[in-house]
């Protein structure tokens, strides 16, 4: 299965980061980050905490602002132009470490809110789509519950479904399993694997190296705000080029 999934049927570049730089005050978080992700590609980003990996993917849907360089998503350049930002956010789904479901809305309402108000989908159709994706993440029976009544793994699967309801071209994952109890990690990873197998363009910040081996087309290692190493998973794990990569891998792969 994984061989077929990795067959390079990749399209044109859909995310382009050119010499992206970002500072938090004096602190230089991103240093000349260059990255090209093609349509249908699955990229895993790893690195020690504080390496800028989360910041980098949060720049792609403008949750963070970059100060220098260019970011082009789906042919639209990210600038201060609010119209462009909204257009890009429609096409880019994001899953957070802390799930960030809306606690005052039911699961179904969480899923239909954005399609109804952003995509202007009729309510009934939005609910049908929502039920389709809840089935896909295998929790349709939770539709009328509130997020607080669900387990962490269920909440994260709802969060993935919520993003999918917007029919995005790109999915960003920001450490989606880091806040989960160990026994719930697998159910979320399974959902992500099946998404990857369907050809979704995915950019995942994660420490789940098993996931990287199984589905990634490329693995990126970041440290100190820079991309240190970028390779296919086979080469990345078998033969890391840089000392820092070797050190990092020796620390997380016991």
């Amino acid at each position: 299965m994984s061989e077929a999934a990795k067959a390079p049927k990749l399209g044109a570049p859909i995310i382009e980061m050119r010499d992206v730089n970002k500072w938090y005050g004096e602190f230089h978080v991103l240093k000349n980050v260059n990255l090209q992700v093609r349509k249908g590609e699955r990229v895993v980003v790893c690195g020690p905490s504080g390496s800028g990996k989360s910041t980098a993917i949060r720049c792609i849907n403008r949750l963070e602002e970059h100060q220098k360089g260019q970011i082009i998503v789906d042919g639209i350049e990210l600038t201060a132009n609010l119209k462009n930002i909204e257009l890009i956010r429609r096409e880019v789904g994001m899953v957070f470490q802390q799930f960030n479901l809306f606690p005052h809305l039911t699961v179904l309402e969480n899923l239909t809110l954005a399609p109804i108000w952003v995509r202007k989908v009729p309510k009934k159709e939005a609910e049908e789509t929502a039920m389709y994706y809840l089935n896909r993440v295998r929790i349709p029976e939770q539709a009328n519950k509130y997020p607080g009544q669900l387990s962490g793994g269920q909440q994260q699967r709802v969060a993935i479904a919520r993003s999918l309801c917007m029919k995005p071209n790109i999915m960003l994952f920001d450490e989606p399993t880091s806040a989960l109890d160990p026994e719930m990690v697998k159910e979320v990873l399974d959902t992500m694997v099946s998404l990857a197998n369907e050809g979704m363009t995915m950019l995942c910040v994660t420490h789940e190296m098993g996931f990287a081996r199984q589905v990634a087309d490329r693995v990126i290692f970041m440290d100190g705000g820079q991309i240190v190493e970028m390779n296919t998973p086979e080469a990345f794990f078998a033969n890391p080029q840089h000392e820092r990569t070797k050190l990092f891998l020796s620390q997380i792969l016991h």
Binding site: N61, R62, L63, E86, R89, R90, V92, G93, M94, F96, Q98, N100, L101, F102, P103, H104, L105, L113, A114, W117, V118, R162, S163, M166
Partner: peptide, 27 residues
């Protein structure tokens, strides 16, 4: 209100007023 609530609403592409009315103010 946790920052994540604002970010999730932004990431979904909700406009400022929709985000404020449906997500931010009720909570």
């Amino acid at each position: 209100l946790p920052k994540g609530q604002f970010e999730a609403a932004d990431a979904l592409g909700l406009s400022y007023w929709r985000k404020t009315k449906s997500i931010v103010l009720p909570q």
